[in-house]
């Protein structure tokens, strides 16, 4: 375990091993996403009250969940970077930010598109929606903060601290619908009791969620690999890789 952790600190080793994982991860994520989308959008039954408009859950719920999961990934990578000064953790933290920002944006847009026909409003300042908007600003803030520093070592430290401070928002998003009176409905997928969604609708949703998590991992690895090549461009192994010499 510890030797794996130490090896993970070497960009060269990570580049090689992630190159082996990447094709598998890509195939699995695209297959799961296609399976979940086709099943959910074409074959799952319509809802007894919302009809077909509920089908946006197959996009909205996975993007929202991975947007939050991506933030935790970014903050944990930031903590590892702060404590152990691991280069790869810094790369992972920075690469997770734009992907998470894109997913959060997608979650907000799909929620808004669904809110208009269902609630009767595009946007409501309720606790859940506002806290997800804060999540989007945190992601954008991390990206902007890094770019605003001349000294990149100091920039990475500042970003790690910001992402750790922002971590407090994640439980707020999750429990906002329980703690306060909000327009957004409470969680459908429950960990402690049975989910309040019929299994014929829930199964494609779970596949979409797993698929999007795999897709997040795929995009993160691709982004991290190009970032590593950029940072290590002066080292011998990258030169050898570029010129094809052994």
């Amino acid at each position: 375990m510890w030797s794996f952790f130490h090896k993970l600190g070497s960009p060269r080793w990570f580049y090689r091993i992630s190159g082996q994982w990447l094709p598998w991860l890509m195939v699995i994520s695209l297959a799961l996403l296609a399976w979940g989308a086709i099943w959910g959008l074409l074959f799952a039954p319509p809802d007894f009250r919302q009809g077909n408009s509920y089908r946006i859950v197959y996009i909205h719920v996975p993007t929202s969940m991975v947007a939050m999961g991506g933030y935790v990934t970014m903050a944990v990578a930031g903590a590892i970077f702060l404590i152990w000064r691991m280069k790869l953790a810094e790369v992972a933290m920075r690469c997770a930010a734009p992907i998470g920002a894109a997913l959060t944006f997608l979650a907000l847009v799909t929620g808004s598109l669904w809110g208009k026909p269902t609630w009767g409003a595009w946007w409501v300042w309720d606790a859940r929606i506002t806290s997800v908007l804060v999540l989007f600003f945190l992601y954008v803030g991390v990206i902007a903060l890094y770019e605003s520093f001349e000294n990149k070592q100091a920039a990475a430290k500042a970003c790690a601290v910001l992402s750790l401070v922002g971590l407090v928002n994640i439980p707020i998003i999750y429990w906002s619908v329980e703690w306060w009176y909000s327009l957004h409905q409470p969680a459908t997928i429950k960990f402690t009791s049975e989910s309040t969604m019929h299994s014929s609708m829930l199964r494609p949703l779970l596949i979409s969620i797993i698929g999007l998590y795999c897709f997040f991992a795929t995009v993160l690895l691709i982004h991290m690999r190009s970032e590593i090549l950029q940072r290590e461009r002066t080292t011998k192994w990258v030169r050898e890789l570029a010129t094809g010499e052994k």
């Binding site: 039954p45 319509p46 809802d47 007894f48 009250r49 919302q50 509920y54 859950v57 269902t118 609630w119 327009l183 409905q185 409470p186 969680a187 459908t188 309040t196 969604m197 019929h198 014929s200 609708m201």
Partner: peptide
């Protein structure tokens, strides 16, 4: 305000 229950008709 919609609740969190989803099921086929």
């Amino acid at each position: 305000k919609h609740d969190e229950t989803y099921m086929p008709p």
